[in-house]
Write a protein that binds this DNA or RNA. Sequence first.
DNA 1: TGGATAAACCTATCATACAAAAAAGCACAG
DNA 2: CTGTGCTTTTTTGTATGATAGGTTTATCCA
Lengths: 221, 221
Amino acid sequence: MAEIRKFIHDNELKVGDVLPSESRFATQLGISRTVIREALRGLAALRILEVGNGRRARVAGPTAEALAAIVEHTVYTRQLSVAQVQDVRRTLEMRTVSLAALHRNDRQALEMLELVAGMEDAIERDSHRIRDLDIRFHELIAQASGNPIYSVLINSFRIITRKTWDIGWHARGTPEARLENIKCHERIARAITARDPVRAEAAMSEHFDSSFMVLLKAGVN
Amino acid sequence: MAEIRKFIHDNELKVGDVLPSESRFATQLGISRTVIREALRGLAALRILEVGNGRRARVAGPTAEALAAIVEHTVYTRQLSVAQVQDVRRTLEMRTVSLAALHRNDRQALEMLELVAGMEDAIERDSHRIRDLDIRFHELIAQASGNPIYSVLINSFRIITRKTWDIGWHARGTPEARLENIKCHERIARAITARDPVRAEAAMSEHFDSSFMVLLKAGVN
DNA sequence: TGGATAAACCTATCATACAAAAAAGCACAG
DNA sequence: CTGTGCTTTTTTGTATGATAGGTTTATCCA
């Protein structure tokens, strides 16, 4: 694995660039195809490479899935609580919302407001659609921060906490509670649009506090 | 890989527990040993499993190395700056130092103060020793936070920024600048010992500001 | 020139074999 | 009964060869 990573760096391969075939690599390094394959598999598990039947291995762009697997395993082995996972998410998103307010472009601000409008539109009708819009909303904030590391980290945590989203939504039993949740998203979007990091952080803080209280009442540990 | 992870969860395996042998897994799932091996390799790359010649695969505890590889690849492919990596580190450590001030136990507080004393002792003599103590210092803060996710995240970032540590240290040319850096650590340690999260955050903020300025002057992009 | 077809290439999986390391079993002395 | 050292067994690591199935490239013809 180290040899392959060295090869990528030495040849300055970019995302999408192809690597030599397994056979060529094997003969070049003087080892069997078996060993190369397992190394490629390892790098593919880390999403550093992308492999597929018939096609040569390619350099992959960063994705959240590998990270999610690691964090999920950490949560599993250490028996961590939802609150501990949410704490990390909160820490990361409090920063990204602030950065987003400073670095957002007009297209991103527009999409945030559209997403909120879409959520209001789908209220009491399609919880799955709201969930997708919610996920996209937070992902967009991370993107707007301008630091891709946050995107990867936050998306990985979102994969883990996906299960608790439904609990949170259904625990907000009344239409008023659900609308209030969406209004909270709107405040975040407006603060980012207004390039006001302080207000954005305050709204995001409120959002996480609310979610935490809801999950607590729902008995999620 | 999904099947193996399912096996771990279904049988509630803990860290250190052994999995069935490759052959048994293969016959049980009706596939060849090759496929099982590559799946095990993938999970080993994520540090979810630990494999070794002659010994059966074991469930591994969370380590930072796999995460570091992912983040390093993200930095490489997106050509991110040191400032962007430091921003994430700062975000995480500002939270852990606050949590550490609230959750630390006496042994941890004592070790922090001892580490600072050790750094003062080694000043102008052994930069490698100071680096090790520095790394241990930040690791200890993450541990004292009580949330293992922070430990894993922060350690992985430390692996990546290890190269810039030496630059930062040597850029602090005068003994005064170096002592001031150590004194900053001392302020952090004392604030944590005093269970004062606000002061701890302030000291940590100062620490990161100082490091950022030093790296900036040293021309690190 | 464009598109269909064939060839070459490559990965996915399987089976088998053997080396190397670890684990388990076992005999034996104390 | 216990611990120690040796032997056997188990298990993983690596290599090789083969086949199926997918992708890319080359070729040919209208």
